[in-house]
Design a protein around this nucleic acid. Structure first.
Lengths: 241, 241
DNA sequence: TTGACTTATATGCAATACGCATCTATCTAA
DNA sequence: TTAGATAGATGCGTATTGCATATAAGTCAA
């Protein structure tokens, strides 16, 4: 029996324990580009820099429950697409003490994004600038509303990069694309979402056919209103994939 | 400022901390099927049941480093494809105390799989029986060498299911398929690996064309030896994808 | 009322990817 | 020399996708 197993069986408290937090990537679209909601830090460390909303995982709280609670507390949102992203555990990622964070990705449709901003005015929507294409990966930059670069605290830039990577990878075999849209949407809006996430323009007829052939969406028969041109038909996502 | 932020800034120790462990899915192929190396538990809880090798994350050790250390300690393996899989954080997943585990996936080629068994004879290679197809997801079962069902401890069955899901998802756009093969391999062996992971037979000519067209592999000019039939050409994986 | 303008939606066509059957090549063993 | 087994190549029909282009359906201004 190894040392770890011995201690595991008889005295698990012998290991000094790290703190565990959950950080949220509250992701929506702004001006047709992916954007995350950030908070400016008041105190050391990284005072003045921008950070993902997060909080400690309580001792009697599951990871997923902690993510939901923080989503409610920090964004004032009851429900959203929420999935675990990745766990970040470098020793010095927080200079004060050992903190392991489990990052979650929350996808907010336009309305939920706006409501979060209203519920928590200190949140800043920051456009995520992704300088790489495909699923290469690499660093990302963040821009404030005036186009100014925002410096991120901790390893939160890595977390954002991981969020984009995950979204791109899952976009065409999962429902993440629909999580950023309201219940009813036009095919053009759906394509806008895909283009925003992938960062490349897509071919319109091909995109339409693909979406319709996959059987993911159903035409409602209703049409868009308030346009000054031919109104597009509204579609609905067929919930269970 | 929320309660969590206040404590975060002034007294992070105020939160009772969970223990954090790393569990490894040591995955290889056995009789052309995916298999994981398991340890039988001696003590409560789940005494007699089978578990993934794991250990506590040390306070001055990064998550990735902990995974590498445990890989060395438990499997006697220096290097292998190692990637973080998912973090499991249900409150009662360990009945004794709150333990959050970060699962890692280690892919072992045939030789490394055998060496791990030799280095740690208590490890049992268990075939993973995946009753679902594609990336549906769902529970998996494990079988010992004599075909007997193995009961798994904790939520380790969920972790295995996640490992299969991850492998299937990444198989044809990443290098995971090659991590289960030695440096030089035949196209037939590569196809065997893909079939084992996906759980379905594949079309031979189509598979060949696809692998060669992707430019992932290079013919060495050398040929397989010791066959009683036409020897296949050996290929090599072009490291950087 | 009509025509310009804008976007939605449909269609035709070429290039590509893929499943499948089949054919040829190359080794061992008897 | 031949049978048996597996490697490797080829031809073909079908589905998918990119791209250009045509048609449909609204608003709006003259």
């Amino acid at each position: 029996m190894t040392e770890a197993e011995l201690l595991n069986d008889y005295d698990p408290a012998a290991f000094e324990r790290p703190s565990v937090t959950v950080d949220l990537v509250l992701l929506g679209l702004l001006e047709g580009r992916p954007a995350a909601l950030l908070l400016q830090r008041d105190h050391h460390p990284f005072a003045g820099l921008w950070a993902l909303p997060g909080g400690f995982v309580r001792i009697d709280e599951a990871l997923d429950d902690a993510a939901e609670r923080i989503l409610r507390e920090k964004a004032g949102i009851g429900a959203a697409h929420l999935e675990q992203l990745y766990s970040f555990g470098a020793v010095k990622r927080d200079p004060r003490m050992r903190i392991i964070t489990v990052a979650y990705l929350a996808l907010l449709e336009e309305r939920a994004f706006a409501e979060a901003l209203k519920a928590t005015p200190s949140l800043l929507p920051a456009i995520i600038d992704v300088p790489w294409s495909g699923e290469t990966g690499g660093p990302v930059e963040t821009m404030g509303p005036n186009g100014e670069a925002l410096a991120l605290a901790f390893d939160h830039s890595d977390i954002l990069a991981m969020a984009i990577l995950r979204l791109r990878g899952k976009l065409d075999y999962s429902d993440v694309g629909f999580a950023l849209l309201p219940d009813r949407f036009t095919l053009r809006r759906l394509q806008d979402v895909h283009e925003a996430i992938l960062g490349v323009p897509l071919n319109k007829p091909a995109f339409r056919r693909r979406m319709l052939d996959k059987g993911w969406i159903t035409a409602t028969g209703d049409r868009q209103e308030g346009t000054s041109f031919r109104p597009a038909e509204l579609y609905r996502f067929n919930r269970p994939l």
